[in-house]
Design a protein around this nucleic acid. Sequence first.
DNA 1: CGATGCCCTG
DNA 2: CAGGGCATCG
Length: 491
Amino acid sequence: MYSSSDVCLAGCTAEHLPPSHPDPPPSNLGGFYTSHKDSKNIKGLIHRIENTASGLSCSVPVEYNLSTGSTRTPLSPAFSSHYDWSLNSGHQAKRARVENIIKGITCTDVVPNHHEETGCVQEGEERVEVSSCSDSESSPGKIHQEWKKATLGHLGSKPDRVKLMADILKYELTRAVSRSVDSIFKSMPLIQTPAEMETSETTLPPHLAECMEDKLRCGTAEVLLPDVQTEALSLVVQKPELERPRNFILQSTSAAPLTPKSPIFFSSEPEQASEQDNITHHRRYGFNCLPGGCSEGGEQRLDTYWNLVKVKSKVTSRSVILESLSVDFFLNNDVFQECLTTNHLKKAKLMFFYTRYPSSVVLRMCFHDVQFTRCITSQLIKWFSNFREFYYIQMEKFARSALLEGAADVRDLTVSRESELFRSLNMHYNKANDFQVPDRFLEVAEITLREFYIAISMGKDRDPSWKKTIYKVICKLDSDVPPEFKSHHFG
DNA sequence: CGATGCCCTG
DNA sequence: CAGGGCATCG
């Protein structure tokens, strides 16, 4: 059995390829996870504001009403029954805590290079803009100024202070969400904004272009496999020399050499929506259907992006918060499909060029976008069983034909990309011919063919279980699937 | 006994 | 390709 380290795609090192971890955070979605953390910070922010009153035991839980976009501070008995907080020690404590809030806000708004030392949330250039736009009645700057006046100058009535505190909390919450959304877009270099797409339709982002280049190299590269034959196989023979006659029916004289249109796996091919796809019901946890439809993993990521574009376009803090929380929830619940699609079938067929007997672990790695139920697993296993069946039937058919045509030397049996046998297999597993079949597959096919030929010529096919020995041999010739098959970007 | 694979059939 | 039957294996 070949390990993954045995397979090396020439000119395509591991670091250029998508991660092969069974379920890694997508490399192009770092921003999503950053956003997720930031979104968590929204909750943490409230706690941070509360906890800025260090040493104070009383905490004011803040509820954020998602439907109204307002914050509400449930008044504790002490808070609600003793309005005159200047005369109450508890009120002094509250005042200290509120002033601490102001400190926290001030250090983010006024002291540009100080927030790291003070533990304040570091943010970008929007800080200045937020402080400067105070013309609106509800603008943060206005709130900030009023709050400063109310607290530092002890102006305003008690309800005003409470209202202002609620506004401050709302303001902070909104800013935190805005930062989260911004961070998503700042850390999403892979996907362009619509404006960028319009201006540079054919220009890929550097990251993506590099990835595509690598895939191009991979696709046209030979699969370098070690010269390993760990088992003493009965019919593993050297390839015939060039001068050896290469004929028989395995060679097609009329067939043009098969060259893939594109070695990139599906990436340039918009998959037609098949009937099966249309009737396939997809499920996103917590979402019946997000805008953009429900389809493959890559498309879902794109859907997510467009969803975020919509989020970005919203200007009201409430909608931003709602959308952001939706995105957070969406990202926090990894998306699984509960049905196998035609794309999965296509991928499985291409996988067959590498492995005829994939283990369940390999299947899980390569189909990590589907939820692996018992039904899904057995369906995938059944697929490969069907693939093998066709494969062995073809092998037996061509072996018998070669025997009938009087092939005397088993070394005359070869499988090249021009042979009829390969064309038959390629038509079955790679109908679109958009995949560069690895040379290793040709080698394995040749070995299989010769195994069948020898067994038949020796009359072993009279044994009802004569194929089993061949199956065992072929099973040991599996290769590990390349990282592309384990990647999110496949398909 | 469940998982897996082959065989056969539609 | 899927479903069912059957055999094998741990």
